[in-house]
Amino acid sequence: MKGSFSISVQNNTVKYAFSLKRNITIIQGDSATGKTTLVDLIREYEQNGTDSGISLSCEKKCRVLEGNDWNSHLSLLKNCIIFIDEGNRFVESKEFASEVKKSDNYFVIVTREGLENLPYSIEEIYGIHTSGKYSDLKQVYHEFYKIYGNFNLENKIQKLITEDSNSGFDFFNSVSQKKYICESAGGKSNI
């Protein structure tokens, strides 16, 4: 799957609207911001369709992946947007990372942990912003916001120190194009 996909999911009290641009999107944030509610709405719609009272709009199928049999379930999913709630420890495994790299699915992962095995972009880490009032009669609207903004470090770097004096140093020295000083520390204990 390639491209951008818009998703809107709502029931009579809550609505989420967002777009996915890359195959891995991370949702982070404090408790009670609506992360698990989003996954619950997707799960409920997946199980009961429109009888759930939930409306889901997306050109791709949206599925929830969870539990110990995640790998067998994932092998059956093609061209889907897969939501994974926090607490599913398999997302931290090398086996999961390997399956994601081979997959043609998009993944939306709710987590507060770092996922060192997954190749996701810092630009695809979001929190959930809520607007509207909590009330039985008014709908609460949720949208994603970027946790890390667009950084332009070009003019802020003065000196770059590399651990080694070989290929790492050679790479960063060449990338710097003499715009900033690049030097080797001669080993990690010297940094």
Rank of each mutant, 00 (worst) to 15 (best):
G29Q: 09
D40N: 14
I84Q: 04
L74S: 04
K21C: 04
G114S: 07
V64S: 06
S57Y: 13
H73A: 13
M1P: 07
I109N: 10
I42Y: 07
M1R: 09
S93F: 06
I54K: 01
E86M: 13
L76V: 12
K179E: 06
N68T: 09
V64E: 07
I81R: 00
P119S: 12
K101H: 05
K78N: 15
K102T: 02
T111S: 15
K78G: 06
R63T: 10
S121P: 02
Q139T: 04
C80W: 05
N79I: 01
C62F: 01
I27Q: 00
S165H: 07
A97C: 08
E154S: 14
N190C: 08
L56M: 13
M1A: 09
Y120S: 06
D85E: 01
V140H: 02
F83R: 02
I157E: 00
Y141W: 02
L153F: 14
S72Q: 13
K138Q: 07
N166P: 01
H129G: 09
Y141T: 12
C58H: 03
S8H: 03
Q10C: 03
S174E: 09
C58S: 15
V140A: 06
Q139A: 10
V14S: 03
K102H: 08
L160I: 04
E163H: 02
S167D: 12
